[in-house]
């Protein structure tokens, strides 16, 4: 803390930090949950793209 260099923080400052940490941690947990969801979407979309490509290939082969 730059402004607080000569100010000593009171003893229970830890509680304030803890309260804001709780907020941060919950937000980060939410980020983790969304990350797992996003990776599932990615996996599913990759899979679906493969299916679509395979189908296109078959179509061009049967047309030829």
């Amino acid at each position: 803390m730059i402004v607080g260099a000569d100010v000593t923080l009171p003893d229970n400052a830890g509680y304030v930090v803890a309260a804001y940490l709780v907020f941060l941690v919950l937000l980060l947990i939410y980020v983790v949950i969304m990350a797992t969801k996003l990776s599932r979407f990615e996996r599913e979309l990759t899979e679906l793209n493969e299916i679509a490509e395979k189908r296109d290939e078959e179509r061009t082969r049967s047309a030829a």
């Binding site: 229970n12 309260a19 709780v22 907020f23 919950l26």
Partner: peptide
């Protein structure tokens, strides 16, 4: 989720 944060921060405030 917000409510869980309220209860935890409130509890910390009470303790402090």
């Amino acid at each position: 989720i917000f409510g869980a944060a309220v209860l935890i921060t409130g509890s910390i405030w009470a303790r402090a």
